[in-house]
Each structure stands twice: as C-alpha cells, then as structure tokens.
C-alpha cells in the first residue's frame, strides 16, 4: 500500500506520515491505553484486607458489585439521573438550537459564545453558583420568603433535584451546540416545501425537521448521556453526603478504601453500562426514524 497519494512530483520521503503521527499516538497509548489495560487486569485481582491486592483471575469483584444492593442502588440512581437529565436537556435545547440555527440576527455569534462560556467556566464553579442559589439562605429561598410564600426555607440544596438541575445546566450547552450544527445543515427550503404542500408548522416539525435532525439528536444524546453518567463535582457538591452516584463511589473506593480491584471493577461496570445504554438508545432512536 502506498503511503502517499496524489503527491506532487519531485519525491518525498515515505516515512513522513509515521513521523508526524508517531509522537501523539505513542503518548496517548502510554497515558490511556496501557493504564486502562492494567486497570482491567486489576479488576480481576483479589482484594484481601490487610494484604492489599493479590494476583488472581477472578470475577468476584464484579459478582460483589451486582449482588450488593448498595452498589446496585448507586448504579440505578446514576442511570435514573442520567436519563432524566438527557431527556430534559434534549427538550430544552431543541428550541434554542433551532432558533440559533435559523436566526439571521447579528446577535447570533454572541448567543453562541454565551452558550459556550459557562461550559468553559468549569463544573466546580457552576456547582458553587447553584449552592448559593439553592441553599437555605440562597436566592430562591430568599425570594420565596421575601414575597411571603414561605416562612421556613424549602430544602432544595442536597437533594436529588438539585443534582438534576445542576447536571442539566452543565450539559445543556453541549446539547445546544451539537443540535445547532446539525440543524444548520438542514436546508430551509425543505421546510418551506412541506408548508407549501399543506403541512402545518407542527406537522412540518415532527415529519420533517425532527427526523432530519436525528443525527444531531443521537450525537447530542450520546454525548450528554456519557457526561451525566460520569458526573462527579455536581453530585458531590449538590447531592449531599447521602446521595451517591457512580463517579464519586469510584473515587471513594480508590482514594479512601484503597480497594483497587473493586474500584477497577466499578470503573468497568460504569463504562460498560454507559456503553450498553448508549448503543441501546441509538438503535431505538434509529428504529424510530426508519418507521
């Protein structure tokens, strides 16, 4: 196989391409692929308290996970939160993405940047923001008290609701930007053609715009779902100590319990669950458009 295609005359060393991709590839293999392989191997080791870790090939860590109701609960909570956040953010992001894609306003680029900005600011800072908004003496409760709706503060912070709100705010920009780029590629005249043929605006949306935006819906859903499943800062800061999702549980296993084999198993359960649900939802959504 030739290394160079359609290259100008006058020759060039054939080893250029490997030299260019080599360093980056080696680095990624070294810091990601190798450690992941080791992690997987360790998930099959045994953990004996006092002895730390013993070489073995066993699935007992995985068995322990799926038989322990505490961890099953953590996984179930994580999946519930992730599904809720994904569905809500898709619903909220679609109209925004549609407006961004179709507007001819000169504020369009400002709106895009405003969507990117919170994303760049980082999760921790935004979680801090929600803490002061939702806290007992926070903005919401102060307003409610101010207009005399409540005497006692409503507990908002350190509840699952707070986590869902926080995660939605984190993932919304990703969803908006993904959908926008796909909607931007849909020729507006196709919508006009539907209107011309007698379809009302809502029919046009459900029969034309939404099916055509499906690749964006899929990409956005997958991306956002993965982010939700792996959220760390938001559940830790907004969920309170009783509320556990998978990423914080994994951190606890490694950093506090120093149970590497079980922690490694946890990591792979998290990844596999995410992957499986992603594939399932992709297949489901693709079926729906074929219909």
């Amino acid at each position: 196989m030739s290394v160079v295609m359609e290259e100008a005359a006058g020759g060039r060393r054939r080893s250029v391409a490997p030299m260019l991709v080599g360093p980056a590839t080696i680095l990624v293999v070294l810091v990601l692929v190798v450690p992941m392989a080791i992690l997987f191997r360790y998930s099959l080791n045994q953990f004996i308290p006092g002895q730390f870790m013993v070489e073995a090939v066993t699935v007992e860590n995985y068995v322990k996970f799926f038989t322990d109701s505490y961890y099953l609960n953590v996984l179930w909570t994580t999946v519930q939160v992730a599904v809720a956040c994904t569905v809500i953010s898709l619903t909220l992001a679609f109209p925004v993405a549609y407006v961004l894609a179709r507007t001819t306003s000169r504020y369009k680029s400002l709106l895009v940047i405003l969507a990117v900005f919170p994303l760049m600011v980082g999760n921790v800072v935004r979680a801090a923001g929600w803490m002061v908004v939702l806290g007992n003496d926070g903005v919401v409760n102060s307003i409610l008290r101010g207009i005399g709706l409540t005497a006692e503060p409503i507990k908002l912070l350190y509840t699952p609701t707070a986590v869902v709100i926080g995660i939605i705010a984190v993932v919304l920009p990703y969803m908006i930007l993904t959908l926008q780029s796909v909607l931007e590629g849909i020729d507006y005249s196709v919508e006009e053609a539907a209107l011309n043929l007698g379809a009302s605006p809502s029919k046009t949306f459900f029969r034309i715009v939404f099916p055509l935006a499906m690749p964006g819906v899929l990409a956005g859903t997958v991306l956002v779902f993965i982010l939700c499943m792996n959220a760390y800062a938001t559940p830790v800061l907004l969920g309170g100590p009783q509320f556990k999702m998978m990423a914080p549980a994994l951190y606890d296993q490694i950093a506090r319990s120093t149970n590497w084999p079980f922690g490694a198993a946890l990591a792979f359960v998290l990844m596999t669950t995410t992957l499986t649900l992603t594939i399932l939802s992709t297949v489901f959504l693709q079926r729906r458009i074929r219909r």
Partner: peptide
Amino acid sequence: YRRNTGMVFQGYALFPH
C-alpha cells in the same frame, strides 16, 4: 399551508429522509 399552490424549489427541496 392553507394556500393550494404547488411549488418547485430552486434546489428541489426534496425530503432527504
């Protein structure tokens, strides 16, 4: 959508799906 006109668009605007 309440006018009974049949339009052929410049780029045809066929529904790709």
